[in-house]
Design a protein around this nucleic acid. Sequence first.
DNA 1: AAAGGTGTCAACCGCGCTAGT
DNA 2: TACTAGCGCGGTTGACACCTT
Length: 344
Amino acid sequence: MGRRPCCDKVGLTKGPWSADEDMKLTSFILTNGQCCWRDVPKLAGLLRCGKSCRLRWTNYLRPDLKRGLLSKHEEKMVIDLHSQLGNRWSKIASHLPGRTDNEIKNHWNTHIKKKLINMGIDPVTHKPLPQPTSATDQSQEEQPKNHPDSDQETKKEPTSSVSINDIISEMDEQKREAETSMQSTLTDAIQEEEDKSISIPQCQIESSSVEFNNVFSIDEVPMIEPDEIFIPFARASSTLSSTSSSSSYSSFDRNSSNCNVFGHHQEFFPTIIHAQSSFDHYPTDKMNVDFWDDDFISNLDMLMNDDSDRNNLAAVIGLEPSPAQYHVEMVLLDEDYSWKFDHF
DNA sequence: AAAGGTGTCAACCGCGCTAGT
DNA sequence: TACTAGCGCGGTTGACACCTT
């Protein structure tokens, strides 16, 4: 037996809300606060059911809502939270002030899901797809969800570094040839850069034990605290990776939110960004500063998408501007999944 | 310029959970 | 304990905008 309808639908308006309805509802809520939703339409003079009023208010009229597309760091948070919480959109939304569950759900279904699939990552499990280009993989998202449910949400399935390696090594195989050709030129540029001392206040500059090999395991990547995020400028060459532990690391000025990726150290690519992003230890208010600053993200985006920057970069290191030679990937790793950005 | 296809997102639907009686 | 009412959630739909041919 189905549940009784929340209200008598006879004579009630459905569909898009008019400006007049919005105004009535808004002024009512602002004057009286949120009370019993069933009574709201009656008291506000609306021919809507209470449920519709609640939805309209929470998803659209609430004054604290952010409008517009999710920023990159919000998107990243959504992905990370989804890997931990599954399709619990309201839980995810609670970590993103000003965003609604509906908005996040829509964004997930229309944007993020496709991105992940294109990256060869299963949007349900957040693990690499077995055969990323196979058409049959598309159907995987139709499979029953295997997210941890509520009593399991803190449990994490161990990520298989081998499967991640499979994907990455496959990609690396493709870029190895191109990288080889630029290796000798890069060596000179890198040596020159290593002679410089990069010192930026408040920036976490440290050597990394991570080896940026063609194939790397996330097990080899040390977890760091969010406030210790650094940007290692690994060379776009596997054979140069062994020098990364002694190389300089560029980073960005946390106070000014200026990223120095392009300002002074264009010789190097940001290859790996690694952050422990357990939100249990990473309160939302911290997400608005430091690493996830929009300026920083947009600068990275510029590097990854702007041909002129690539060409400038090529000029600096004395190469012909050919995107194929700079097949650089930016990988963000988490305990549960790896997230590959576009590589150019 | 028009038609068809695709993407986006606000809104709806129905179920589950919880509090009250 | 059983039932009801209300709310919140996730899944789905449909209208509109935009894109492609």
